[in-house]
């Protein structure tokens, strides 16, 4: 396992489209639920233990060699909001494009051919990790970290939050992020239907509302 490869994959600058998405923070800011570093931390913690855990388990299972198409259906079943399903597939497609250029692999080609409009991003992330020579735990780490990293960056842009405070939020969540990744990896050898299905209903509901806004900074 190459640590540098994991850092590259988890880097927010990896060109896979994430910069245009807030992970639900934009809707939470509008509703007044996220307004400072403390409320951002609570938002990120909730996201990590719900959507983050579910994503990390899907990514970990894909990296472990589960059938990505079965995992893609499992991701559908775990994502009630059509807007979030669209977002997940769009980001999966964008990640697939970047990964096929950086870590070419027939397994990626096969999933791209089977899901030309994009598979769910966590599934793609796990398969990309596999193609890059990373294991199920590393895939889970990347997914868990990403589930909060993008949200914190978006909060900086939306609130004019001090970027140092937002980064400190992520640092305080580091131990929990690692723990979620370990839980996800531990679950990844289970049958697909037994993978974690934690969800945050408010994220699903506000994603649907956000998708109807005519003025917004982020695509989701």
């Amino acid at each position: 396992m190459s640590v540098a490869t994991l850092l590259l994959l988890a880097d927010g600058r990896f060109p896979a489209g994430g910069h245009a998405h807030s992970g639900g923070v934009e809707a939470a800011v509008r509703a007044g639920r996220v307004q400072d570093a403390a409320s951002l931390e609570e938002f990120c913690r909730s996201r990590l233990h719900t959507a983050g855990l579910t994503s990390a388990a899907l990514a970990s299972a894909a990296a472990a060699g589960h059938d990505p198409l079965a995992l893609d259906e499992a991701a559908d079943a775990r994502t009630p909001s059509p807007a979030l399903r669209r977002t997940a597939r769009r980001l999966g497609r964008q990640l697939m494009r970047a990964a096929r250029a950086t870590w070419p692999d027939p397994e990626l080609d096969a999933l791209a051919a089977a899901r030309p409009k994009g598979a769910h991003q966590p599934v793609v992330l796990g398969l990309v990790a596999r193609s890059a020579g990373l294991g199920p735990l590393e895939a889970a780490h990347a997914a868990a970290y990403e589930s909060v990293g993008g949200a914190a960056t978006a909060a900086v842009r939306l609130l004019g939050l001090d970027p140092l405070d937002a980064t400190a939020v992520l640092a305080r969540l580091a131990a929990e992020t690692d723990e979620v990744a370990r839980q996800a990896e531990a679950a990844s050898s289970k049958a697909v239907e037994d993978l974690p299905a934690a969800s945050a209903p408010l994220l699903e509901i506000t994603a649907e509302q956000h998708a109807t806004w005519s003025v917004r900074l982020f695509a989701s």
Partner: peptide, 20 residues
């Protein structure tokens, strides 16, 4: 294409949404 408050990122640093 929506650009997440950073139009230059979407045309220069991470062009994936525009290419699609």
């Amino acid at each position: 294409v929506e650009t997440g408050a950073c139009p230059h990122t979407a045309i220069r640093d991470d062009i994936s949404a525009n290419l699609e």
